[in-house]
Amino acid sequence: MTETSVEAGVDAASADVAGVETASWFALVGTHLQKDLRIEWRSREAIQSMLFFALLVVVLFSMAFDPTAAASREIAGGVLCVATLFASVSVLNQAWTREIRHDVLDALRLTPADRSAIFVAKVLANFLFVTVVQVLLGPVFFIFYNLRPLGDGWLLLAVVPLGTWALVANGTFFAALSIRSRNRELLLPLILFPIFLPALLAMVLAVKTVLTGDGSDPHLLWLKMLAGYDIIFMTVSLLLFDTVLQAE
């Protein structure tokens, strides 16, 4: 008797909370996103460090391989992906360490809001940072490697964001996960890279197909795989993010 009434009370309470959450989920994402963007706008730490790091990787690869025009079309996709990958790891680490200072993360956990909003906002913010870096770096990249896409260049506008999303969504998730460990900065690449490998493969091959225009992928198989990867891992991240955040 009492048990059922308690349950009913809990149900009513959670329904109440859920009602508030559903009403303001997008507003919550907006608030978190706004906060992250404002911090970045004031410091410009993330974008500057990523930009310079990615530039260094592009230059290093160019020096190390000294590619001809034909060869650079083959490897450029890989260099672009790896440069983005390395550059974003440091920033992804920063994204959550920032919240650890002054116990912001604990405060966020105490709010009755849906945790997924925090995650989605973080992913969106990081996605915007990486995209800005790619937009700025793109022309430099094309100049350094003497690139001229022989395939349908517009496809890059679908391939690169999808690949970046795969990287950033997983990276944000695993950064939140590895932040609880002792050597947090070290752990993120160790667990992110193996998980990200299929997306990396798809992204590299899709970019290569566009740049070389060899028509090896007429059905856009790699693009579809990248989209599938994004959907699957975003869903699982959303499902498990609460577990990661409340992991003690």
Binding site: L177, S178, R180, S181, R182, N183, L186, L187, L190, I191, L240, T243, V244, A247, E248
Partner: peptide, 17 residues
């Protein structure tokens, strides 16, 4: 590696994820 780098109940949950 993750299981070595963290400990306690939270590490178990993170490793499971």
């Amino acid at each position: 590696l993750l299981r070595r780098f963290a400990d306690g109940a939270q590490m178990q949950a993170l490793a499971a994820v």
